[in-house]
Design a protein around this nucleic acid. Structure first.
Length: 218
DNA sequence: CTCCCGATAT
DNA sequence: ATATCAGGAG
């Protein structure tokens, strides 16, 4: 049996589809710009935490210009609990600066332009393009990266290459929703350090099922 | 490969 | 107390 198995891949995708039919982004937003800010904040932070912060944040800051008006220290306070707040405050301000100067305050709708923006990597760009503009994209976050390897969809650590591979396995019209299905499964069942294979609906076909054994049974 | 950093679950 | 969570830049 080889590492890759297209039949198995499709069966895994089918079961994910069945169990998480309408998986969607957890980040709350009303405009592409809000989603861009929320996604920058979501780096190394749970979506739930970001939502708590953005609920107030988006009332205070409506346009890119609004972020540019305040001092870094003030913005840092407003986003504090998402962690990495100094970095993120800098990123958001640099991002808004570019948005105003180069894009007339509008958020670009393609990954190439988005990734030129400070603080915006490929994952963030994919999230915005896919979820704010509805353009097919796959955001390779930590869950998609981990589970893609666990499922043997890929044998690869580089997120860009994982994205490339996944696009061959998943039909284009399901790129966005599948990203969310995989992420959902990673959050609920296939946890990073202690995957719950016992309760997993994929445990009969997952090539990595029960491979992480519990060494400490007290 | 290192730095940036808080919140929550156990 | 400590483990776990979760991207981008230099």
């Amino acid at each position: 049996m080889s590492y890759f198995d297209e039949k198995r891949n499709q069966e895994i995708l089918a079961r994910l589809r069945k169990n998480y039919p309408d998986a969607k982004i957890k980040l709350k937003f009303k405009t592409p710009f809000e989603l861009l800010v929320a996604t920058i904040l979501s780096a190394q932070c749970t979506d739930d935490r970001v939502n708590i912060v953005t609920e107030k944040l988006f009332k205070k800051y409506k346009k890119p210009e609004d972020y540019l008006k305040v001092k870094n220290e003030e913005l840092e306070k407003d986003i504090y609990s998402t962690g990495f707040y100094k970095q993120k405050a800098k990123s958001i301000k640099a991002c808004c600066q570019v948005l105003v100067e180069k894009y007339g305050g509008k958020v670009p709708s393609n990954i190439e332009e988005l990734t030129k923006i400070p603080g915006v990597g490929r994952k963030t760009a994919s999230v915005v393009v896919g979820n704010a503009y509805g353009i097919p994209a796959i955001a390779v976050d930590t869950h998609v990266k981990r589970l893609s390897n666990i499922f043997h969809f890929v044998k690869e650590k580089n997120p860009d290459k994982i994205e490339e591979q996944l696009k061959k396995i998943i039909p284009e019209d399901e790129w966005i929703v599948t990203s969310h299905r995989i992420a959902t499964h990673g959050r609920l069942v296939c946890l990073a350090k202690n995957p719950k294979c016992e309760i997993c609906f994929l445990n009969d076909i997952c090539p990595s099922a029960f491979k992480v054994k519990k060494e400490k049974i007290k």
